[in-house]
């Protein structure tokens, strides 16, 4: 039995190492444990897919890494987030500002509302460059235009002066990506970067992210509830459920040998080209409210393979194979 996230990428120091991260929200109805002891790590240049249904705590995990959880009502209550060995949860706010947008960047889900409507798109990209690279207005503007070109916005000199409302959703998401990558971050967090877009535009954005990763070599934390997107981009997958990691595995292994019944359910709900649509099976039930978690395993009330002990005590993380862990009693003792 193994706790934590050892045994991955032997010999390589991870870029980001999250350990026991706990983020809670103090609401009127009680304390919501949105992220309840999440641990995983990201190696330099690696793409991790963070998946799970809506409400599992993926976005809160991302915001916690950036220390952008709205406080109040939220608060990071425990754990550590090491970036190159430095704990981001322990440094001052001033130091953290040098990390945001510079070493770690984030692209949010909603391109329509994530850009400030009263500033031009170019200015919003330029601002990040001017802030972190200590460049003058002219140099930072030139570099901002280069960034717009990099994300394949046509006619970037002209588009620089456009306001967000003059651009389509896909173009705006490109601006967001340009802004995020403008200071060559070591890690890009992409929180459902294509979910809010039209299907055809979604594919273009994923295509763009693939290209940029190739070109710039940054690590990517790709958050999505769409396993098909993960299959395109990620090398390793972390599955979250109700605030905890329930499974972690290399991409191929996860698809071939899912160890957790929740992952099974997620995989079964991917539409397959060769299967009739009726066969598409979503997992019955919904993600529990973090205010009302079931006793024992958090998935137990929806689990088709539930055993008696599942609703008594919560299982720990069990090693299934090299780099493959699962939070399910079925995997107890099955490890290497």
């Amino acid at each position: 039995m193994m706790e934590g996230n050892d045994g991955i990428g032997e010999g390589m120091a991870p870029l980001l190492e999250i350990d026991g991260l706990k983020t809670v929200f103090y609401t009127d109805e009680g304390v919501a444990r949105a992220v309840d002891g999440v641990s995983f790590s990201i190696n330099p240049g690696e793409t991790i897919g963070l998946v799970g249904e809506s409400g599992c705590g993926k976005s809160v995990t991302a915001l916690s890494i950036m220390r952008l959880v709205p406080d109040p009502p939220g608060r990071i209550e425990g754990g550590s987030v090491l970036l190159d060995g430095r704990d981001l949860l322990a440094i001052s706010e001033k130091e953290m500002r040098k990390v945001r947008g510079n070493e770690i960047s984030i692209v949010f889900q909603e391109p329509l509302t994530s850009l400030n409507p009263v500033f031009t798109c170019g200015e919003q990209v330029r601002e990040a460059i001017g802030l972190h690279q200590k460049l003058g207005r002219r140099e930072s503007k030139e570099q901002a235009i280069e960034m717009l070109r990099l994300v394949r916005i046509p006619d970037p000199e002209k588009r620089y002066g456009n306001y967000p409302h003059q651009m389509s959703g896909g173009m705006r998401q490109r601006v967001m990506i340009a802004m995020a990558l403008s200071c060559q971050p070591k890690l890009l967090i992409a929180d459902e970067p294509s979910t809010a877009l039209d299907v055809s535009v979604q594919a273009q954005i994923i295509e763009l992210l693939l290209e940029l990763r190739e070109q710039l070599g940054m690590a990517v934390l790709l958050i999505t509830h769409d396993l098909a997107v993960v299959a395109q981009m990620a090398e390793r997958v972390v599955v979250m459920y109700a605030g905890v990691v329930v499974e972690e595995a290399p991409l191929g292994r996860l698809f071939a040998h899912p160890a957790h019944p929740y992952t099974d359910g997620l995989l079964a709900s991917i539409p397959k080209v060769d299967a009739p649509v009726e066969r598409l099976s979503a997992i019955p039930g919904t993600v529990p409210d973090p205010l009302r978690l079931p006793p024992g395993c958090r998935f137990s009330d929806r689990c088709p393979k539930r055993m008696d002990k599942c609703s008594v005590t919560e299982p720990g993380m069990f090693a299934v194979a090299e780099g493959h862990r699962s939070r399910c009693y079925l995997c107890e003792g099955s490890g290497p």
Binding site: R100, G101, F108, S114, N116, V118, M176
Partner: peptide
């Protein structure tokens, strides 16, 4: 959301409030 974007860029809170929020 765009206030969160401004913070995610690494802007100091004063600039987030007085530039990005106040104008809106």
């Amino acid at each position: 959301d765009y206030i969160q974007t401004a913070r995610a860029k690494g802007l100091p809170e004063g600039k987030v409030v007085l530039k990005h929020a106040l104008k809106n």
